[in-house]
Write a protein that binds this DNA or RNA. Sequence first.
DNA 1: TTTTGTTTTGCAATCGATTGCCCTATTTTT
DNA 2: AAAAATAGGGCAATCGATTGCAAAACAAAA
Lengths: 349, 349
Amino acid sequence: MQRQKRTTIYDIALKLNLAASSVSRALSNSNKVNAATKALVLKTAAEMNYQHNAMASNLRKGNNPTIGVVVPRINQFFFSNIIAGIEEVTYKKGYNLIICQSNELHAREVDCVNALVNQHVSCIIISIAAENGPYEHLQQVLDHQIRLIQFDRVVEELDTFKVINNNEKASYEAVTHLIEQGYRRIALLEGPQQLDIFRQRKEGYLAALRKHNIPVLEELMCENAWTKELGAEATAQLLGLENPPDAIFASTSDFSALGVLEVATNKGIQIPKDLGICGYSNEPFTELTSPSITTIDQYSISMGKTIANLYFQEMEGLEFNVEPKIVSIKPKVIVRKSTQRIADVNATT
Amino acid sequence: MQRQKRTTIYDIALKLNLAASSVSRALSNSNKVNAATKALVLKTAAEMNYQHNAMASNLRKGNNPTIGVVVPRINQFFFSNIIAGIEEVTYKKGYNLIICQSNELHAREVDCVNALVNQHVSCIIISIAAENGPYEHLQQVLDHQIRLIQFDRVVEELDTFKVINNNEKASYEAVTHLIEQGYRRIALLEGPQQLDIFRQRKEGYLAALRKHNIPVLEELMCENAWTKELGAEATAQLLGLENPPDAIFASTSDFSALGVLEVATNKGIQIPKDLGICGYSNEPFTELTSPSITTIDQYSISMGKTIANLYFQEMEGLEFNVEPKIVSIKPKVIVRKSTQRIADVNATT
DNA sequence: TTTTGTTTTGCAATCGATTGCCCTATTTTT
DNA sequence: AAAAATAGGGCAATCGATTGCAAAACAAAA
């Protein structure tokens, strides 16, 4: 197969003895061309295997109907659901989606964002990496007239559209649930505190304890226990305390809750009788463990749709200086066996 | 904030009293500009908040360092892992990644592919939708000088690069394992037979039975049982047979195996004693169920990397007429509790 | 038939970066 | 010192589609 050039509108114009402009108009279904001509152009274009060149078109029109998404990890259930939700909306609007992953690294996040800015995408949707760093790259996005929507993990100081979970409230409700089930020494597994979502979850935890007059104990709060392994380590430590906790709230993730479950099970501890466990995210596996794990659902797919709709409804084609909206979604506590020691007819299994 | 225009190389040229071409060369680090000039341009560009315009550049250069990926579902573990693997490689090469999902619909797949062709991407990586349909759209890709790599679910007749799992072999080994564990009436849950991967898995199943002189029984093969619900239905039916199976190989997915597990457990059937269960894909949850489910790992992340490397090593910049390679990856049977009724020291738990 | 109005089509500039070719200094070689 | 080579930089065309404006063709109105 020879390296033949692609058919352009000029080729079509030449063949039909027309001007390229007319071909362009015919193809874009403008009402400034004769119906017969239009039909002829369309037919010829098909015959000549013509394909519209989006690069040229976007360049000329000065806009690129593409949305860039930057997430820490593409293959994390929460994020891949978010992406799926976004895609569903953008597809209908004829937008493309460019996906990048930061791998939780700040430098890489900066790279990704810059690449997207170079592409002149219309909007960048981002959930920031765990690794700390300045956020000039995000300010740059705005300076370049590109829309920016932050979700889940956001830089609060930056005045942009945001779609977040009400982490504090969800956390508060989860801990309240634990208290209602009679747990009193509730430990907290924390995530990296530079991320606001983890600070908020801690706030909710503290608020719930205070509300119920339960003392806050430093020894029951473990920093940086956000993977399965770290969760397991922290659990081993907690359970070794002179006065161990009777419940563990793995506010970081279900994976860390899984670590808790494994260590506790291995130690022969009865769950939920002697130890309550609550995770965060409603990963699919949480309903399959034994016992199933109480967790918090973040409505990730619908959150993705919300994010995309935010762009199309509030930003696309509109003025740049509108007041950024902040959409807060209230996650839901999914009660399962790992925290149910009081019979409850309303509970989910 | 006003709708100010973006800085271009002409703006920089004007300011520095240079020609645009020199600015371009300076920015692309050409050795045809003086080092001092180069430094000056770089400095000024930064000051003026200049950002390279990829659309213009790609148009002129006639290539777009972007790879398009089309998968049935972004948020399926296997696919999101594939994407993560691909991304890891493309990121290093400075390529962008455009992601689309077909949602298993043929029409939508065609749309996605066309959008990618319009974007003049360098390569399209695709795993086709379950819904049947002609594959002219894929032929088109080739006609437009765009590289095409099919993976996992491929159109065999189409002569392209392919990265596939050796489904037949994996299936054969899984069934052989079941036979070795003493199961004799092994049922098969099949996926849509228009997809070659499911045909191959059936072949492997049949081959293993034949090899061990076990009769192939029509009543033990259930078509189209590839979701959790369909798997559950099929299981209910199978277990209601006068002569029910003593093992079920859910060749379609772990989800369908999960359906099997639930129905069997509810009926009080002992697993693995009275019924062996084997899934396919090694979804994370398979090691968490009770009992844990024997399944087949497809090395999805590394498969993603393999796919991307195939492009960079065998296709990028090279002639278009090289003989397409077919890379076959041998999946691995992960033996877990759901099929272990004979003590085996080597087994994974 | 002339004038006015409406379609339809063509011309040429434009989007922003790249690159082949040419020109002028400057350096190196003989 | 003259000739040759090299470095540094500018001009202008180019990628392919779009679009404002002008021209031509045709239809309708006077």
